[in-house]
């Protein structure tokens, strides 16, 4: 058994997959892991992230499985789960072996690894879709928009891409509170990530105007509810409490 120990990032895991293929080991006897926990009777190989190798893997995945399935693989790798690298590796290997057509990589849900990768991707993309709606920007100094989030899965990159397309002319900053990771988008430019300390965080000193809009939105949320249909339980099911600490209408 060979265990490739990779860094917990797209680049890291894709590099791991590259190595596993390069060395042409028996697939059933190969594992990808994120933790360097020694396993008995296993050879451990540390793999550092390598941009050009990862890029090669990405190109292959996109070409063979199509954009949608490739994105699902990325979503699975954004999940907060120690077994994700292995599940994705096995799913990819299986897809390559069986020559899955684009859009059919996740067909074999009866297979344990495919199902695992599929479930992880589904969980992460669910959270991503939630946050597409639940992120609340507030204006801090110089018209910069700022929002903090605390996602279970590492979905910041997906959100940055989403908001960069949506608000190309805004300066905005998204801060992942759990991972201390900043996404920064300068108006008219391309966005980037920055691992940083709390003190990089802009101190929200809401202007009068900012407070006005926050108040207006709170009022709107109250006004739009129908009293005769009051149903806080349903509201909680659809908008889990963990998101609310970051949402102004619940403050």
């Amino acid at each position: 058994m060979t265990v490739y120990v990779c860094e917990d990032s797209l680049e890291g895991i894709f590099t791991g997959i590259y190595r596993a293929y390069e060395e042409k080991r028996d697939r059933a006897d190969t594992m990808l892991s994120l933790e360097d926990e020694p396993m008995l009777f296993a050879e451990h190989v540390k793999v550092g992230p390598d941009r050009s190798r990862a890029a090669k893997v990405i190109r292959t995945l996109e070409r063979r499985f199509g954009q949608e399935d490739y994105l699902s693989l990325c979503m699975a790798l954004a999940a907060d789960d120690p077994g994700k690298a292995q599940a994705v590796y096995k799913t990819v290997a299986r897809g390559l072996e069986r020559n899955s057509a684009p859009g059919h990589l996740f067909d074999d849900l009866a297979d344990g690894d495919v199902h695992r990768a599929f479930s992880l991707a589904r969980g992460a993309s669910r959270e991503f879709h939630h946050l597409q709606g639940f992120v609340r920007f507030q204006e801090v100094e110089d018209k910069v928009l700022y929002s903090a989030i605390g996602p279970k899965n590492n979905v910041l990159t997906f959100l940055m891409a989403h908001f960069a397309d949506r608000l190309p002319r805004e300066n905005f900053v998204l801060f992942d509170d759990k991972r201390k990771l900043f996404g920064i988008h300068p108006a008219g430019g391309s966005w980037y990530l920055l691992q940083g300390e709390e003190d990089l965080k802009p101190r929200p000193c809401p202007s009068e105007e900012e407070e006005r809009y926050q108040e207006a939105f709170r009022g709107f949320c109250r006004a739009i509810a129908i009293r005769e249909r009051y149903n806080p339980q349903l509201q909680r099911n659809l908008l889990p409490l963990r998101f609310r600490e970051y949402m102004l209408e619940f403050q």
Binding site: G133, F134, R222, A225, I226, N231, L238, L239
Partner: peptide
């Protein structure tokens, strides 16, 4: 995309 849910459980989009 749903942006919030009001107290009647309806989506605010």
């Amino acid at each position: 995309i749903c942006h919030s849910f009001s107290s009647d459980g309806r989506c605010i989009s």
